[in-house]
Design a protein around this nucleic acid. Structure first.
Lengths: 355, 355
DNA sequence: ACGGGCGAAGTTACCGATAACTGAGAACCA
DNA sequence: TGGTTCTCAGTTATCGGTAACTTCGCCCGT
């Protein structure tokens, strides 16, 4: 009648090697499981001698704690979730890399998901991460509204927004000062002697709006005012961003009168498309039209015309976001939100230097 | 004396909302926990009527199973581990994106780690993934020897190698036929009239060796034989790959006599560096030196000289690897290894077209 | 001598699910 | 009518850890 299931009767010498458990070590050393557990967690209850012996035996047996069991009782999964719009975009790839590096060695693992710039998909991915009970989330959101984040807050999972933020959502945020970005970019074009400066803007995100605002401010400071036709969106609904969007947008800009002699592009892929349109139209960069991008993440120096860009230091964004995220784990009370803007800086190249 | 811990006395109406558990639903409906569990798993034990009611209530309460608890008893974590040498390299970024897309909606999550092209770091990352009991691993390895993989096999965790493989390791593999890549690339240069074809090779990996072999074969087929000085490694020990390695390597090649009039580069970043060196030396591409890369992952069409490259269809590699990986989960006996090579194809651009 | 305090380890209950078995009726069958 | 099958659900024992107590000596002070 004796039930002989795994629990005790497990064979440990047959080479079947199911992973070693605390129970195995405990029996092996004539101690209780709890003692082993305490040693592992550096509990003060244990004599130094016992502790050393146990640690030694753990090494020998190559013991690895079972994350699932631990998570079940402690509620912590030692997992960080990262949601980005597109892993292929170097800006986000670099952030992912930086986050990964920052949590490495802290015992955390990183679940990375891509929303493909689709709000609905992003919502689902966030639900998945919540279901997995990640300890904290880092999100570069493609949402239009902050609703999903209310959900995260309900679940009391801390999170950090990066790159894009939401008006009215008082959340942790790491990113650049997009207004400054817009001002630097437009200001640079003005310095280079551009008289008619257009903006190939992004879709309705805080980054796009901020850069637009900065662009307007820079122009206003020099008594310039953009024509409505000189502010064109590179893609309407997420279907047409990046290079193709830049190409089409630039075509529209080139058809206006007066034709712009400088274009500030929301990001580098868009700038790439814009440059293609400009060159195909038989115009010269930067003599006829100067182009500046944003992100500085492409092999910008190797392009047909090396592209001037605003560097956002995405590695720093990723690193700081990870550090902030880890600091939030395990807090009883939600800490007051931290907002941190990293510095943006101009990297001037041939596409704007009219020397 | 009655212990009143979480178990039963949990308050569910206070807005404290700890996640809903099976137990909550069970009590709510006057059923047992097990019944709920069976419904969730589509057990045939349950009447359609009960099943529907339970499912409905689950939806209403937004029930989400606790992965940790499930993993603890079933041994499955519904987690896939992906190890790549560098997330920033578009080739691997695209693979990550494809893997992510392929497992999306299958209930799996993806833990992505980067080895930074360091064998020791990769070993550690693999250990982490094993400790987390991922269901299956996909690895683009930076190892020199297949030792770490023996470890994975000991643990009976299935895995799929991508891109790089190991002689003597009979494992699942998805990648390109590197010999074919080398032959196509060198063959193309020959067709374009190059007489002296050099190779900027990669470090000691199966990919580098395969491409080198294909390169030699293509030359041999045309009675050409490369000078030893015309085969240069773009980086010795993982410290100097990519663009800088290509630059330095090309400088060495340009100093040889006879000077090569065609260079087959191990990958696109290396080709970029090589082109920089060539242009800086006052030579023309492709008239003086034709350059071909491999990967076709950069914005190759937008470069100063648009780069001819061998497309490896990395999206397909990622997708197939993910499909294969998922098919391995839960198999009792390790299935005989699957090896699958995706087709490589030439994308000719200005850097080789001598019209 | 005796209660108190302390160091070091053990007991017990539980985290939230699932595997494996048990049980109560209803339907079926000879 | 008694036995056999089905149906549909419930009981019980884990999974591998951890939190919160409890226990057992032993040294101390009064």
């Amino acid at each position: 009648m004796t039930k002989e299931r795994g629990g005790d009767g497990r064979q440990r010498k047959t080479g079947k090697d199911a992973p070693v458990r605390m129970k195995d070590i405990a029996r092996d050393m004539g101690l209780s499981t709890v003692t082993i557990s305490k040693v592992l967690r550096g509990h003060s209850d244990i004599s130094e001698q016992t502790s050393k012996r146990v640690l030694k035996r753990m090494k020998e047996l190559n013991y690895q704690p079972n994350f699932a069991a631990r998570a079940l009782i402690t509620g912590r999964t030692w997992t960080v979730g990262l949601v980005v719009p597109d892993l292929l975009h170097p800006f986000f790839a670099l952030i992912a890399k930086a986050v990964s590096a920052a949590i490495r060695g802290q015992g955390y693992s990183l679940i990375i998901t891509s929303s493909e710039d689709t709000p609905e998909l992003e919502r689902q991915e966030i639900e998945q991460l919540l279901a997995r009970r990640v300890d904290v989330m880092i999100v570069a959101s493609a949402q239009r509204s902050p609703e999903s984040f209310r959900r995260i807050e309900e679940r009391k999972t801390p999170y950090v927004l990066i790159d894009r933020r939401f008006p009215g959502l008082n959340a942790n945020f790491i990113g650049v000062d997009d207004e400054a970005v817009g001002m630097i970019a437009a200001g640079h074009l003005i310095e280079q002697g551009c008289k008619t400066i257009a903006h190939l803007r992004g879709v309705q995100t805080s980054t796009a709006l901020g850069r637009l605002k900065g662009y307007r401010q820079a122009l206003a400071a020099h008594n310039m005012k953009p024509l409505p036709a000189h502010i064109v969106s590179a893609g309407i609904s997420g279907d047409d961003r990046g290079e193709p969007g830049g190409y089409k947008g630039a075509l529209r800009l080139l058809a206006t009168t007066p034709r712009p002699d400088g274009i500030f592009c929301f990001n580098d892929p868009i700038a790439l498309g814009a440059m293609r349109a400009i060159l195909e139209a038989g115009l010269r960069i930067p003599e006829d039209v100067a182009v500046i991008g944003c992100g500085n993440v492409l092999y910008s120096g190797f392009l047909r015309v090396p592209l001037t860009s605003i560097d956002q230091d995405s590695a720093a964004i990723g690193r700081r976001a990870a550090e902030l995220a880890l600091s939030l784990v395990g807090n009883k009370e939600p800490a007051p939100p931290t907002v941190e803007l990293v510095a943006a800086r101009l990297v001037a190249r041939a596409s704007t230097l009219r020397a």
